[in-house]
C-alpha cells in the first residue's frame, strides 16, 4: 500500500472515504436534531447521551474531527494541485457546455461550509467543551433543548445557517454521486443512485433549514 495515498487515485479515494464518513455523520446529526421539533425531552435525552458518553466523546468525536480536517485539508491540497496543472488559462472557456456548475465549484461550496463549521463550533462546540471540560460545570440533562432554541433567536444567525445549508445542498448534489464514482462504482450504477443522491443532497439540508426556521419562529 506504500505510496498509494501520494498517488492521484489514492487521494481521490481518500476524499471519497472521508466524504462517506461525513455524510453518515450528517445523517445521524440530522436525525437527532429532527427530534427537537417533536419532543424537547427526546432531544435532551439524545444530546445528553452524545455529550456525556465516553465512547462518543473520546472515541467517535476525535475521529469526526480528524475526518472533517482531513476532508478540508485534502480538498485544498487537491485544488492547489489541480489549479497548477493548467498554468495558462483559456481566454474563452464554456464549462457550462459539458458539466454542471456544482461539479465545477466544489471548492467554493466547500469554503462556505468551512465558514459555517467555524460559526457552528463557536455557537455549540466550544461552549460545550468549556462547560464540560474547562469550567467543569454540573451536568443538567435538560439544558440542551433550551440552548438550541436560544441560539435560533437571532434572525442573522438563523439566516447564516439557512444560507450555509443551501451551500451544503450544492456541495452534496455533486459530492454524493462523486464519492461513489471515485470509489470505483461504474457510471451506470452511479446513475441509478441519481434519485437517492438528490433525496439526500436536497432532503438533509432542507430538513436542517426547517429545524432552524422552526425554532426561530417558535421562541418561548
Amino acid at each position: 500500500m506504500s505510496g498509494v495515498l501520494s498517488s492521484s487515485i489514492g487521494r481521490k479515494v481518500a476524499m471519497a472515504a472521508s466524504a462517506f464518513f461525513l455524510m453518515f455523520f450528517l445523517l445521524q446529526h440530522f436525525a437527532i436534531n429532527l427530534t427537537s421539533i417533536f419532543s424537547a425531552d427526546a432531544f435532551n435525552e439524545l444530546s445528553h447521551f452524545m455529550g456525556t458518553n465516553p465512547a462518543v466523546q473520546f472515541g467517535l468525536q476525535p475521529i469526526l474531527i480528524f475526518g472533517v480536517v482531513f476532508h478540508f485539508v485534502m480538498g485544498f491540497v487537491l485544488e492547489v494541485k489541480n489549479k497548477s496543472a493548467r498554468n495558462i488559462k483559456y481566454v474563452k472557456n464554456n464549462g457550462a457546455a459539458n458539466s454542471t456548475w456544482v461539479s465545477r465549484n466544489m471548492i467554493y461550496s466547500g469554503l462556505a461550509i468551512l465558514a459555517f463549521i467555524v460559526l457552528h463550533f463557536i455557537d455549540f462546540w466550544f461552549p460545550e467543551i468549556n462547560h464540560k471540560y474547562i469550567n467543569v460545570l454540573p451536568e443538567d440533562p435538560t439544558r440542551y433543548y433550551g440552548e438550541l432554541v436560544h441560539k435560533f433567536q437571532s434572525p442573522i444567525r438563523t439566516g447564516a445557517y439557512v444560507a450555509a445549508f443551501a451551500f451544503l445542498a450544492l456541495h452534496l448534489l455533486h459530492g454524493f454521486k462523486s464519492a461513489f464514482q471515485s470509489s470505483g462504482m461504474s457510471a451506470k450504477r452511479a446513475a441509478k443512485l441519481e434519485t437517492v443522491s438528490k433525496i439526500y443532497a436536497i432532503g438533509i439540508p432542507v430538513g436542517f433549514i426547517v429545524i432552524a426556521l422552526f425554532h426561530h419562529f417558535n421562541q418561548h
Binding site: K81, S99, T100, R104, S178
Partner: peptide, 14 residues
Amino acid sequence: GFGNCTNTGACEVE
C-alpha cells in the same frame, strides 16, 4: 503533472 479527476464528467461529453 496532470491534475486529479473530480468527476465533473466534462471529459466524457467532449
